[in-house]
Design a protein around this nucleic acid. Structure first.
Lengths: 129, 129
DNA sequence: GTGGGTGCAAAACCTTTGCATCTGC
DNA sequence: GCAGATGCAAAGGTTTTGCACCCAC
């Protein structure tokens, strides 16, 4: 029954009150530490899992072996920098409207999708090449 | 210098001589066992890594926490069954042609993408709902 | 008291690497 | 012999879970 949870509250605030996208658990932990919120890795993990069940947070897979989370927003895709790992949101979605076609081609009932672009962010393009 | 490698050979044959897509290392191991090929997990792992460097095999990430591999084919996307985990290829690609737009919107230089559909395969649709 | 929230530590899972061995060449 | 291929086992890196403790109701 709605007992106070400083970790959960802080995680919710961190994710919704920042422009950063696709937080790893470590990212969240560092952010909390920066805010002087004492928290443990497993508590952050549990907070994220909890918020995910609530629908406030979405888990996104970016293929770097780490779980990533972000505040649930409108539908969007992601782009990840091959060099530094930075993640940015991609507005819009080129996949909309292809569902019927994919269902016809595969026999699956399609319920969702995940699109991840890879490339170089502006910063790394200047630095790396 | 081209020394015989029964594991590598068997892995190559398994991946190219089957309709299955997106093999996990365990999948390959079971297939080899079925073919009476003795092999160890790490040998299969090394064979896959080797074939990947050769370009004969591609590593694909399907967000289930396991590395997946498949024979390198023309560009295609994947669909994964939420219920049983079956993976099927999706011909074509709705993302082609959106690169310029994404680059404009994000400032990244886009070099690739990964699209994964999720849904229910025909079998699970009948069984689960 | 009771049940949820936390921290700490250990368990689980996968992938990757080290090492000794075996085998063609 | 030498170098590559293998198996076994252990190391690494992350995510999950078990447990004991503490605190708000």
């Amino acid at each position: 029954m709605a007992r106070p949870s400083h970790v959960r509250d802080a995680v919710r605030e961190a994710l919704s009150g920042s422009t950063r996208h696709a937080w790893s658990i470590e990212d969240v932990l560092h952010e909390l530490r920066g805010r002087r919120v004492s928290a443990d890795f497993s508590s952050v993990f549990r907070a994220l899992t909890f918020l995910e069940r609530e629908g406030l947070v979405s888990r996104v897979e970016l293929g770097d072996g780490k779980a990533r989370f972000e505040a649930t927003h409108g539908h969007h895709e992601h782009v990840r920098c091959d060099s530094c790992g930075a993640v940015a949101p991609v507005p819009g979605c080129p996949v909309e409207g292809t569902r019927a076609q994919v269902e016809r081609a595969t026999g699956f009932t399609i319920t969702g999708h995940r699109l991840l672009f890879s490339g170089l962010c502006a910063e790394c393009r200047g630095r790396v090449g």
